[in-house]
Design a protein around this nucleic acid. Structure first.
Lengths: 192, 192
DNA sequence: CTTGATATTGACCGATCGGTCAATATCCGG
DNA sequence: CCGGATATTGACCGATCGGTCAATATCAAG
């Protein structure tokens, strides 16, 4: 019927995501995306729409990947829950320390949150789900089940989300790795 | 000797800071700054240099103001230390909840940290000083002085910085105010 | 008033911005 | 091999970008 795509859409989107991840939204030009994908400008617009739509797609995939990663690392049996949580936080801090590009979600929030309802929905949805994933493993880690544990786990999870987001900001801002590890330790110790 | 300035430099800088605060670095055009200050383009460049230099000036003043505010709210006698800390955190959370524009420092980090050494120095300097201010009041709030208290206060202060930065990101990202207040409460409760 | 120094203004610069489109290429069902 | 449908390409668009500069205005000192 029609001419087929010559490029792999997933590959192109990965290049788009990576470029936005490096440079943020405003500082990324469509020509940057053309270079990164290797596509012609028309193909890019034909396949993905405007620059803003490309960013939304990229951010959406980024959020899904982040949640999938967290779930993969945190889901498991009750016995190992605390260990999995510590390991996960450790991996996140190491990632923050080693990363030069920072977090795409943080850039999206800083540049676009409040201006773009679609971005707003994605971000708040991500935070809600992320908190729930963390609340799940924290709940599992409680040695005994008593009344109020669920509320406590949820509160501790939202605190942990805040700490992890703060660590990201501080890491990108040049705070020493030792300080970041100390913060993570202190936060985890506060879970008891 | 020469023709005097017709505008107030502090007022112009306030307008510049406010514009960057609203729109971030990349999304702010020099014409935006021209409109905000009411100055001609040449006067703007003559007085403040390039767009990047204007941003650095704005961010520098922003950081000084944030630290000055924190010190004003947190300095005092030992007896009221814990109360001052709680009040300060409460004010910060309220500010986050009510703010539509977010935090200029967060935008600077997201958009420019890692690319501009001057920004990097300002940001890491801010974080160090901020942590020290918080550590001071936390140290005052300890009921008894024993060995290790200073280290503990410093660790708790850096954790609190992370929480406050995380709250900022979450607030801008649309997380409900109740959740943010809960996080602040939980974090403050963990200081004991 | 003259003069030297600085401030103000906005037209102007080349580059780049996000986005479009006509020309062309390539596919598959007939 | 043909014809309808879609993909590809990159020249091109008007707008805007950050930044400059010559013309002019306004000061204080002499």
């Amino acid at each position: 019927m029609a001419r087929p795509r010559e490029f792999d859409e997933k590959e192109a989107l990965a290049a788009i995501r990576s470029t936005f991840w490096d440079r943020g939204y405003s500082a990324t030009s469509v020509d940057d995306l053309v270079r990164a994908t290797g596509l012609g400008k028309g193909s890019l617009y034909g396949a993905f729409g405007t620059k803003r739509e490309m960013f939304v797609r990229a951010l959406s995939e980024y959020c899904v990947a982040a949640l999938t990663f967290a779930e993969a690392r945190l889901h498991g049996d009750d016995a190992g829950a605390l260990g999995r949580l510590h390991a996960y936080v450790g991996v996140m801090v190491k990632g923050i320390v080693n990363s030069k590009r920072g977090c795409l979600l943080a850039k999206a929030i800083a540049e676009l949150a409040g201006d773009d309802p679609e971005i707003d929905r994605m971000v708040s949805g991500f935070y809600r789900r992320y908190e729930d994933v963390l609340a799940g493993v924290i709940r599992q880690s409680k040695p005994s089940r008593k009344a109020g544990d669920d509320d406590e786990a949820q509160r501790q999870a939202s605190l942990l989300v805040a700490v992890l987001r703060g660590l990201e900001s501080m890491g990108k801002g040049g705070v020493p790795a030792a300080t970041l590890h100390g913060i993570a330790e202190t936060a985890l110790a506060a879970l008891r």
